[in-house]
Design a binder for these strands. Structure first.
Length: 554
RNA sequence: GCCCCCGUAGCUCAGUUGGAUAGAGCGACCGCCUCCUAAGCGGUAGGUCACAGGUUCAAUUCCUGUCGGGGGCACCA
């Protein structure tokens, strides 16, 4: 009995009541009924407030409505009891056998347990990180690497066809600054006022000069071009490698420069022109973004004839749509939130639906703390904490988990001392430890010759509270995955795993799964082993959605 | 001035179609290993859910305002 099945039973009961004429529902019977797991054990295995919600429309007292529903439900399969409580809640207890059967279903489903087809047939473009190739990925971008990649896995789990994409800003003045910074370093000069500094600059210079020993004797413009082209390539290779080591690989690395060189920018502008969205003023070309909620119109082509930054985004968005993506999700830091309204306006100007075809997600920033004091980063001074620094300090699993377990609406403080301490304070160990314990039980079961399959599994033997709680936690997994996907909130998966790991640890503490000593295996041992197998499957599936390893031993 | 996010236990944070007695980890205190991994479990202590109104049978949740913290408001990218 899963929450979905219970929901269906309640809908069935409502339908019966309506058909019998016992109740009148002007708006019809709802397609599904939300059931929740009560916080208090006395409130049963599941509870629903559907009687409270429908009573007014039915013109009935909520408790009377609930009573009718309870009587109807009492005869339904797998339901042990349904009681009315408070103003009209319905507290439901599930028959032991009906609940335990889920364990075998999970084991049979394996890696597919929790997946669905909610987004099947949808092509989703997920753009994240997209850090400029003027330096290593710093801590701000790492949050998006962890959250974005996890969101990609979660959307895939609900059936979407996901393309992970990295927009590579290799066009514009920041690249010129980068090239000038490299040249200055090669000449032994200080970094330019608006340039970049740090050890990584010197490292790149050394590589470029090794490949082009004569670069400093080239004319200025030529030397600058050599440093630009080589430097960007080296930087980009380094970024890709860091992300790969972090478990994040993109399907497409899109170069902004290509949009300008291929004429895609001009085509996008022409399209908007045809749609009547462009106008000329003060020698510049403007897009009517204020018609679609932006504060003001935006310059697309500057008065000097150069395309403004937004022109690349116009072309890039159009390009994504032409590649067949129904949904283009872009993950941006809070320092870019001011850009959201014009992106949405741009989407609308193309005649698309903002929030559907284009969906910018804003996440708050990550602060670094050391010795209780905030750490100031400066790109110019080179005091940047990079993705690799973070991984060196706390490892990939802890880093990914730590960054993915918080709502992206919250600014997070990352205490370097705490995370570097590798202490067991980190919740990722709690979940991983549960998985390792489960794996250990399964290994021992094999050694003891205890085997379980559907034919020898008696779900009605899983009767104690901790088994029921664990089973209900496992039953909730598909819904958590669906909610995490629809709300774009991977942290829900992490929190769910912590709850489920806790339910398992509590079960482990009170019930011994395997025979002790020379005890003969019983049906109860086998039933619990099935529950253990199902739990390991769910924790493993969930950790995979976060890109965190599920260790067999710790 | 305008826009976005946040304000819940000492700390870090969960809590969505609005529900019952407010949740977890860490920290503090007291317990539990002759038995499958003690990186675990049980218990105690700790709260005006920032504040004030409003909607509702019901508000931490929705609306308005105030205060506090953070981040933004270019013919820069």
């Amino acid at each position: 009995m899963t929450p979905e099945q219970l929901s269906a039973s309640i809908v069935g009961a409502l339908t019966s009541l309506v058909e019998a004429g016992s109740v009148v529902l002007p708006d019809g019977v709802p397609a599904e009924v939300v059931v929740e797991r009560p916080k208090v054990k006395e409130h049963g295995d599941y509870a629903t407030n559907i009687a409270l919600r429908l009573a007014k429309a039915a013109g009935m007292n909520p408790r009377d409505f609930a009573q009718l529903l309870a009587d109807q439900l009492a005869s339904a399969d797998g339901i042990a009891s349904a009681e009315i409580a408070g103003p009209g809640f319905l507290n439901i207890r599930v028959a032991a056998g009906a609940q335990g059967a889920l364990a075998a279903q999970i084991v049979a489903a394996g890696e597919t347990y929790g997946t669905s087809d909610l987004y099947s047939g949808q092509k989703v473009n997920l753009e994240f990180v997209s850090a400029n190739p003027t330096g290593p990925i710093h801590i701000g971008g790492v949050r998006w690497a962890a959250v974005g990649d996890s969101l990609g896995r979660i959307l895939t789990a609900i059936g979407a066809e996901v393309t992970r994409e990295y927009y590579f800003n290799d066009h514009g003045v920041q690249i010129d600054r980068f090239a000038r910074s490299l040249l200055a370093d090669a000449r032994g000069e200080d970094a330019p006022e608006d340039g970049y500094g740090g050890q990584y600059i010197s490292d790149i210079v050394a590589k470029v000069m090794a490949a082009h020993p004569d670069v400093l004797s080239q004319p200025e413009a030529e030397a600058l071009e050599t440093f630009r082209a080589e430097g960007v390539d080296l930087m980009f290779a380094e970024i890709k490698a860091s992300l790969h080591d972090f478990g994040v690989d993109f399907d497409v690395y899109f170069h902004e420069n290509d949009l300008h060189e291929s004429g895609a920018v001009q085509r996008a502008i022409n399209r908007l022109d045809e749609l009547g969205m462009m106008y000329d003023k003060d020698d510049a070309r403007w897009l009517r973004t204020s018609d679609f909620g932006d504060d003001k119109d935006r310059v697309v082509v500057k008065s000097d004839g150069e395309p403004a930054y937004i022109s690349g985004d116009l072309a890039y968005y159009l390009n994504k749509r032409e590649r067949g993506f129904d949904r283009c999700i872009i993950m941006l830091g809070a320092d870019h939130h001011g850009y959201v309204s014009r992106l949405l306006a741009m989407c609308a100007a193309f005649g698309d639906t903002p929030g559907v075809n284009l969906e910018p997600l804003i996440g708050q920033l990550v602060n670094l703390v050391r010795d209780g004091k905030p750490l100031r980063m400066s790109k110019r001074a080179g005091t940047v904490l990079t993705l690799e620094d973070l991984v060196d300090a706390i490892g990939v699993d802890a880093a990914r988990y730590a960054l993915a377990r918080y709502s992206t609406d919250s600014t997070i403080d990352l205490d370097l001392d705490l995370w570097a301490s590798q202490s067991s304070d980190n919740p990722v160990y709690y979940v991983q430890y549960a998985h390792a314990r489960l794996s250990s039980i399964i290994r021992n079961a094999v050694d003891l010759g205890v085997v379980i399959d559907e034919s020898t599994f008696d779900p009605s033997l899983l009767t104690i509270d901790q088994e029921g709680t664990l089973l209900r936690a496992l039953a909730g997994y598909p819904r958590v995955v669906a909610r995490a996907a629809e709300l774009r909130e991977p942290h829900r998966v992490a929190r769910y795993l912590e709850d489920t790991a806790a339910a398992f640890h509590k079960f482990y503490d009170v019930s011994h799964v395997l025979p002790k000593g020379d005890e003969e295996p019983t049906d109860l041992h086998r039933a619990r082993l099935m529950l253990v197998s199902a739990t390991r499957q769910v924790l493993g599936n969930g950790l995979a959605l976060l890109g965190v390893s599920a260790p067999e031993r710790m």
